[in-house]
């Protein structure tokens, strides 16, 4: 018995060592990035791993400001796109899911099967056609083609439908009808509050997804004033920053910082949301 407990303890120690190693592996690159953002290029060339901050944050910022990388413009554009796309996706997915759950109509089942099928189609398949279409209607360098398509997010309709099936009693809808509430009003006033927990989880992921997206903005946006954060970041890979190590690390840090704040504030919900997403069947 004692021998068994000893091996269990040994095993547990091993597990903790591996887990701590993996946790450090997650943090270390970002730690080096944040620290190097405050160090001068000379310091970084002397020793590229600094574990404590230095005092060159302002001078790195000066270098960044003089170049094409403009985090403020990127931040505003990404904010507009992500907020717009998230609102559109969450609201209209909920509406579509409500249509699938609350009403019995002839094409309900075929429509649901269709949504399940298109969920699997990878987005990049339509990339060339999407670009040509947007180009021909003059919508390149516009934020709209990055917002409006979010209205049709099949995976979220699927998720919202599962949620509604589990949490909505149609009696509520019926009693609203007796009270004279019109259908669209019932959805906005009664159904939306019921769906709030699901909407919040989905909103976080949609927002992060659109914030991080690179492919579509990269092919559509050529005007520097419309660049999103990921495109701004990609500029840091350019030749003008080749020798400005500290400034590059600072630019990267500025794009990571908002995500860090959101993540650590909402991490519990995010982890729970990932788990929930997988169990949607």
């Amino acid at each position: 018995m004692r021998g068994m407990r000893a091996t269990t303890n040994l095993k547990k120690t091993g597990i903790y060592i591996v887990c701590i190693f993996l946790a450090v592996l997650s943090i270390f690159p970002f730690w080096v990035m944040f620290m190097n953002a405050t160090r001068s290029t000379f310091e970084i060339q002397q020793s590229s791993i600094g574990l404590i901050p230095s005092k060159f944050l302002m001078s790195n910022w000066q270098i960044l400001q003089g170049k094409t990388f403009d985090p403020i413009v990127g931040f505003i554009n990404s904010m507009l796109i992500s907020t717009g796309a998230t609102l559109a996706a969450v609201y209209f997915s909920s509406l579509t899911a409500y249509a699938l759950v609350a009403y019995s109509w002839k094409l309900r089942q075929p429509f649901f099967t269709f949504i399940m099928a298109v969920m699997m189609i990878p987005t990049q398949v339509s990339g060339i056609g999407f670009y040509q279409f947007m180009y021909s209607i003059g919508w390149t360098n516009s934020l709209w083609p990055l917002i409006i398509p979010a209205t049709a997010t099949p995976a979220m309709v699927f998720f919202m439908r599962q949620y509604l099936m589990a949490s909505l009693s149609l009696d509520i809808v019926d009693s609203a009808r007796i009270d004279g509430s019109r259908e669209f009003n019932t959805f906005n006033r009664i159904i939306i509050p019921i769906m709030k927990p699901a909407m919040a989880t989905q909103a976080i992921f949609t927002f992060v997804f659109h914030w991080n997206r690179l492919f579509e903005p990269l092919i559509l946006l050529t005007d520097g004033k419309k660049y999103t954060m990921p495109i701004m970041v990609s500029l840091l890979r350019g030749d003008i920053y080749k020798t400005e190590y500290g400034a590059v690390y600072l630019g990267l840090s500025m794009t990571v910082l908002p995500l860090f704040i959101v993540y650590f504030a909402l991490s519990k919900h995010i982890i729970a949301g990932v788990a929930l997403g997988a169990l949607k069947e």
Binding site: F30, N212, I231, T255, L259, Y263
Partner: peptide, 9 residues
């Protein structure tokens, strides 16, 4: 959840 573009660079 961190931007892949940032991570690549």
């Amino acid at each position: 959840i961190i931007t892949a573009a940032t991570i690549a660079i």
